Amino acid sequence: MKAQLVIFLSLCAVSFAISFDFRKLFLRNKKPNPNNELNTLQMIRREGYPAEAHVTLTEDGYLLTMHRIPGKPGSPAIFLQHGVLGSSADWVMLGKEKALAYLLANQGYDVWLGNFRGNTYSRAHVSISQEDLKFWDFSWHESGIYDLPAMITYIVKLKENFLKAYIGFSMGTTCFYVMASERPQIARLLQSTYSLAPVVFMEHVTSPLRYLAPLADDYKVIFSLFGEGEFLPQNYVVKFLSKYLCITQYWEERICVNSLFILVGFDRAQFNYTLLPVILNHTPAGTSSKTLIHYAQGIKSGEFKQYNYGAKRNMEVYNSSEPPKYNLSKITMPITLFCGNNDWLSSPIDVMQLSNELPEKPIIYKVPFAKFNHIDFLWAIDAFELVYKKLLDMLN
């Protein structure tokens, strides 16, 4: 059994021990959400919107699928990019009255939803099988210098116009700042950027994930924990566990929600419990173990820099014993940073450091709710009132 499955079971076990009466284990949810078993395109169409899938090729051979809610001819394009272990589905799960993708479509925008390499919708390469470890030899660095440029240039060529805005969440922000630092000519195709829960500097991360940081350079230990290739794909085992262990009549009582909160911050008031089956049907969507290691290195070093292979390999790759830092001074476009006070993965202190490193000072919007956590930016009950309304006002 893979280590990631053990971790998943352990987290659920914590939740069960805290809040679960085992006699209720097999009681089923009375009214299942109709979106439980649907993919992104199916969810969009079920809500009455048109939906398209577009495939683009990266410079290093990965095939990425983007989902689109097309606007009218000539409508400005907005690009939304998910976080680690996420997918395009994250932006539509809340439904047509609350999900950001639909709110943007209602405003007349041409809405594009990206999918990074390695997730449910982007698991192909022109010459490498996903069964090959080489397929998974990437971190968020490659997603920044290859994936985002491929998707953005595809849209710009199709639209024959710049993108009005890039909206990234979590790793979607990390990769943006990689791209904007390393390939500023691509960033200039965007008129503005909105970073939801930006993850760039990570010294003040308070999630238990920080305890992996001391192991960040011990690859044998890390790979023994997470595997050497793919990390947490959306597969039948995860779906079975979520369906029969987490989703019952009484999962409102923190059965498996604790396994989410323990990583991102506790905010039971804003968590939409009826959404849990849909979330677990799409998340985790998969990524590489190397992506998680790169984040652990950032927590350990407190710096925003490229992947650390060790002194010997670094000399071969970078001609330096240390990996180079990303040069944030190259970024001059309008940026807005959204942060939550209870975000264990995107600390307001680290967000302020990002602000100080940028040559053009960004707007910083602190969500006016003390318990607002990392995943609340996607799925909070009051996401519209607390975040999206402000974002839409800025866009308009």
Rank of each mutant, 00 (worst) to 15 (best):
T153A: 03
T206C: 02
L85A: 01
R123M: 02
S10H: 10
A101D: 03
V264T: 15
T40M: 05
E230H: 08
V278P: 04
L158D: 13
P368I: 02
F201G: 11
L241R: 07
P368N: 09
V200G: 09
M333W: 11
F16Q: 10
F20Y: 10
A150F: 00
L292V: 14
F169E: 05
L133A: 06
I331H: 07
M171F: 05
M352F: 03
C339M: 12
D267K: 04
Y326M: 12
A77I: 03
L104C: 09
Y388P: 05
K24F: 13
Q107I: 04
S301L: 05
Q297W: 13
A187V: 08
Y318P: 03
L5K: 11
A383C: 13
Q81A: 05
I335T: 13
V84S: 08
P34W: 04
V367G: 09
H204Y: 15
I247A: 01
S195L: 09
G118M: 01
G227A: 01
Y318M: 10
E131R: 10
P368A: 04
T206V: 09
I167D: 03
V178Y: 09
P198E: 11
D90M: 07
L25C: 11
K159N: 06
Q234F: 00
P208Q: 03
Y62M: 11
K157W: 09
V111A: 06
P32T: 04
V367H: 10
K300Y: 13
F266C: 00
G118P: 06
S181I: 09
L328E: 12
N235K: 07
R254M: 14
M151R: 07
H374I: 05
K330N: 15
G172H: 07
I128C: 02
S346T: 08
R46T: 01
S170D: 09
A99S: 14
L337V: 07
R268P: 09
E47R: 04
I7W: 12
M202L: 15
W140C: 02
L113W: 04
G86E: 01
Q130H: 09
L190Q: 05
F135M: 11
F369W: 15
F369E: 05
L190V: 10
F16C: 03
A197C: 14
L260P: 00
E252L: 05
H374E: 03
L113E: 10
D382N: 15
Y211V: 11
E303Y: 03
Y154I: 06
P359N: 00
I69S: 06
S289Y: 03
K220V: 13
A89P: 08
D218H: 14
G144M: 12
